Simulated scan of single mutants.
Amino acid sequence: MSALWSLGVIESLGHIGLGVKFNIHYSLVLVVLSDALVLRIYHVLIQKIKLEYFRRVTAVGYSCVFFGWIAILKFCAI
């Protein structure tokens, strides 16, 4: 996404409603939702499946947001 931003792709999508505000808004939504989903999965693994290993596991990264953007851009292109 930073590559798209630095190339000016994000700004150029403004004419179809996918400009800077859209990018910032949905990036924040995707960060929150992906973190909530990971925490929920860890909770299920710890509480239901009794995998105590996941009490010490941390998840850091932007890949969930990146793949969420792939889905958003795919559906917007249809």
Rank of each mutant, 00 (worst) to 15 (best):
1 M>P: 05
2 S>F: 07
3 A>L: 12
6 S>R: 14
6 S>F: 11
7 L>N: 10
8 G>M: 00
16 I>E: 05
17 G>D: 02
18 L>P: 07
20 V>A: 09
20 V>D: 08
21 K>T: 15
22 F>A: 11
23 N>L: 13
23 N>F: 15
24 I>V: 15
24 I>C: 15
25 H>K: 11
26 Y>R: 02
27 S>R: 07
27 S>G: 13
28 L>E: 09
29 V>S: 09
29 V>K: 07
29 V>H: 01
30 L>A: 06
31 V>G: 03
31 V>H: 03
31 V>P: 00
33 L>K: 11
35 D>N: 11
36 A>V: 09
37 L>F: 11
37 L>A: 12
38 V>G: 15
39 L>V: 13
39 L>Q: 11
39 L>F: 08
40 R>H: 03
40 R>I: 06
40 R>P: 00
42 Y>R: 14
42 Y>F: 13
42 Y>N: 14
42 Y>L: 15
43 H>L: 04
43 H>P: 00
44 V>W: 06
44 V>P: 00
46 I>W: 03
48 K>Y: 06
49 I>A: 04
51 L>T: 00
51 L>W: 01
51 L>K: 03
52 E>M: 05
52 E>A: 07
52 E>Q: 10
53 Y>Q: 14
53 Y>K: 15
55 R>A: 04
56 R>D: 05
56 R>K: 11
57 V>A: 14
57 V>M: 12
57 V>G: 05
58 T>G: 15
59 A>F: 13
60 V>I: 13
60 V>R: 12
62 Y>G: 12
64 C>D: 09
64 C>P: 08
65 V>Y: 07
65 V>D: 09
65 V>G: 12
66 F>D: 03
67 F>M: 04
68 G>H: 03
68 G>C: 02
68 G>D: 04
68 G>E: 04
69 W>E: 10
71 A>W: 04
71 A>K: 04
73 L>N: 13
74 K>E: 13
75 F>L: 05
77 A>G: 10
78 I>P: 00
